[in-house]
Write a protein that binds this DNA or RNA. Structure first.
Lengths: 232, 232
DNA sequence: ACCTGAACACCGTTCAAGT
DNA sequence: ACCTGAACACCGTTCAAGT
């Protein structure tokens, strides 16, 4: 009965040997397609063509598209490095990690969509999770609080970066017109005088800078909050 | 040149009058389909059938599927209520709001996927944004910090709830087998002794309860952190 | 003004058949 | 063991045509 939950990482790969095409090759090509064209740009047919293979050949290496995405997704986790908290202190390590996670997502915008859709059980994700647990243990948390503190930081970074990625995608990083944006938001915010206040600030002239400030503000707040829990 | 960014909310609706079918009717039907079958369960064809209409009739009321989703998405924001900070204090108001946002997303799991994909420019979203700004002003923030504090809280709630929704979807709230889950994660976490520690805790026996605790832990931390900024 | 069906250009996935 | 093409059951969207 229990239609149990599945993941690439819970199944043995087809083979240890590397015959004709390989899973790595496929994942690499998928990553290229994803980075260039986004999540919508990856189809099994296109990926097959890119590898000069029939679209359906890929199904020998990968059970389905979702598992392929899981594989690609884990590569993003490989780019997130956790500094050693013993060397730089837990707070600095957490801060550097947070910025690194944000950057990795900005480099691979398609990963933002996957966050809420696929489990992160790959070796790279696990490696990061393991290091993060250590980080918060070094900080002084114990028991369930280790995972709670971990989740808090991760949730903040993801929650902050997901909309940022969406925003970049919606308006395009290039050809951004501050006046047009201001006009759009002003229109949407009509009838909300308090919201309109925001328009009069220069947030729309250099949105990248403002978002970096926002990220930092929140990060400091979250870390302050976690530090307070340690004192209690 | 500037392929400018679009949203339903920036275009005038077709008509003020309500002739045969109406936009509201369509959105209501879409919401039902989404709640029952999820994001993948909504197709223009199925929605048309549900309204005993041709699939393509809908295109008279709505420019495309994304705009329809924007419309549905805004209905979720209608369910998030912001208590009056003058009555209950900003911290209590923020806390109640945070729980409300989480509940709204858990009620409409499909909205978690939309967060990172569609702008939230609808009237209901704007209404919440406006009230949230007021909340943080009452708290004592000023200038850009109002929006920064706002983003911090929102990011935390979304970042925490998106994976929660995904988790529910992946394993199903019903027919959850703690032992199977423990086995799966143990397998994925092999070679990471520190991670494995977590298995020995009873987190898998009542995941709902543990996640509620995690949410509360993080929320208190975030609010503590914001409070600290006020003192500075 | 509103609704239709046919048609276009796509999807992911299965499967019998080939080598 | 690996790869193929045909086929199935879908998509969103356009558009000429109807009323």
């Amino acid at each position: 009965m229990s239609k149990s939950f599945t993941s690439v990482w819970l199944r043995e790969p087809r083979k240890a040997t590397t015959p004709g095409r390989s899973r790595e090759e496929i994942v690499r090509a998928a990553l290229e397609l994803l980075d260039e064209e986004g999540l919508g740009g990856l189809s099994m047919r296109k990926l097959g063509a890119k590898l000069s293979a029939g679209a359906t050949s890929l199904y020998w290496y990968v059970a389905n598209k979702d598992e392929l995405l899981e594989l690609a997704y884990d590569e993003v986790w490989a780019e997130m490095i956790v500094p050693d908290p013993d060397e730089v202190g837990w707070r600095e390590a957490a801060s550097v990690l947070a910025y690194g996670m944000r950057q990795a997502m900005l480099r691979h915008p398609w990963s933002a969509d996957l966050l809420g859709r696929l489990p992160a059980l790959g070796p790279n994700a696990m490696h990061v999770a393991d290091k993060m647990r250590r980080l918060f243990k070094v900080a002084g948390f114990s028991g369930l609080d280790i995972d709670f503190a971990n989740s808090t930081l991760t949730a903040y970074v993801f929650g902050m970066t997901i909309p940022e990625v969406a925003w970049n995608a919606a308006i395009g990083v290039e050809n951004y017109d501050p006046d047009e944006m201001r006009a759009s938001v002003t229109k949407a915010a009509a009838q909300f005088p308090d919201l309109l206040e925001r328009m009069h600030m220069d947030s729309y002239d250099d949105p990248q800078a403002v978002r970096a400030m926002a990220f930092d503000f929140g990060l400091v707040s979250v870390l302050d909050g976690l530090e307070r829990r340690l004192a209690a």
